[in-house]
Design a protein around this nucleic acid. Structure first.
Lengths: 66, 66
DNA sequence: TGCAAATGTAAAGAATATTTTACATTAGTC
DNA sequence: GACTAATGTAAAATATTCTTTACATTTGCA
């Protein structure tokens, strides 16, 4: 799965730590998500999409291997 | 977090096992998701939403406590 | 009623997500 | 070059998801 969190973060001028605090996770979790180190929970996806004002599908996208 | 998987399953006339096979998880995983026993991964949410032809937000909804 | 399919549930274990702490690296600014 | 904020990364610990196996309950139908 891919995601465009880094881009959205840039659009909204948020640091990883800013975003982490806003959605209630650690900064490393944001960093790891951006680096595709793991697949976040649906709650996180919904929170991030809501914060950025876009549908989940626009930020998180299934890959071939999913 | 709440979800309407059971309703969507009824609309599409799928058993828990049908759905489980289609998205590649065990039947118990579907059952537990419907019973809100845990929060599924974003990959599962995307697959389920795609299968039912609806946006993730329409099937999975944040609750107060999230 | 009796049968089969579907669903609910539970427990143990494997896999994965997330946190915490800690340090290295990068990029911008003075 | 020195300082600071932001980012990358890593390892250990904890929490959670998901699987497997197994059995009980429900539901619809012959």
């Amino acid at each position: 799965m891919k995601n465009s969190i880094k881009v959205e973060r840039a659009i909204h001028s948020l640091t990883q730590e800013d975003l982490a605090k806003k959605i209630g996770v650690s900064r490393q979790t944001i960093n790891a998500m951006e680096a595709n180190k793991y697949v976040p929970s649906t709650v996180l996806a919904l929170k991030i999409a809501k914060l950025f004002g876009k549908p989940v599908e626009e930020i998180f996208e299934l890959s071939e291997e999913d």
